[in-house]
Amino acid sequence: MDQDFLPALPIGDWFAALVTWVSDNLGGLLSLIGFVLDDLLYEHLSDLLTAIPPLIMALALGLLGFFVRGWKFGLGSLIGMLAIQAMRWWPESMDTLALVLIAAFFATIFAIPIGIAAARNSQVSGVVRPIMDFMQTMPAFVYLIPTLFFFGIGATPGIVATIIFAMAPGVRLTELGIRQVDPEMVEAGHAFGAPPKQILFRIQIPLAMPTIMAGINQVIMLSLSMVVIAGIVGAGGLGGAVYSGITRLDIAKGFSAGVGVVILAVYLDRLTAALGSRSAVAKATKKTAPAH
């Protein structure tokens, strides 16, 4: 078919124009975001995590795993962390951990209220859902271009891209969790005269908590994967190591940094999954499950 049959759709150009406009006109806001994320949070958190001697930090993470999940996981975590140190990726891993914590924190803070709003209002849900689909399916690398444009090389574009990329499951699972709460429970709240806010905070959110926690777990996992990709824009950490392994065709470096990412991923996943099973509802379910 003739290419000119349809007029060209320069959607990319429009977006580029938008990005240029934002960076020209909202420079103050952008530098504020950069200041908060990088100078205020990332710098300090990564300094703090790196400042703690690896052995003590590994013990602390192992202990946390022990308290949250049990001795097997605690021991495994300790061995995993020591392995990272033995591979000589300790500072990079702590940088990555700092990036993940900051990005996941903001992604969760944005995702949960949006999820709640979507659960309570079908119109909001109708708007939010396609946006989340879009955000989640857009190739992760694409986020790096405008953020790089806004913030320049460094940790900030990586964190911002990660926040956007990792938010979707948090929103989705929060909405799902709240919508799945038995309508009779909500009705009971209304019937006893509870105001909507109380119903939300004392009935809906507690009952949706296992699902919301599953969402947060997903947010953290997506954050980790995106933070590694963000190595390309100079976010540092294990991602930076993997990226430099690629550019120099250094198999050994790329692989061992990759193993470091895997260890962090397994640790964060199991840890947050276990946190989810500590909510009041999950505990009640466990306690009342038939013995066999």
Binding site: D182, E184, M185, E187, A188, H190, A191, F192, G193, I203, P206, L207, S279, A280, V281, K283, A284, T285, T288
Partner: peptide, 17 residues
């Protein structure tokens, strides 16, 4: 509702947590 009318539900509607 809270002062004059209370309600009992078919499927109990107790809060499991």
């Amino acid at each position: 509702r809270s002062q004059k009318v209370s309600m009992v539900f078919q499927h109990f509607a107790l809060f499991p947590h």
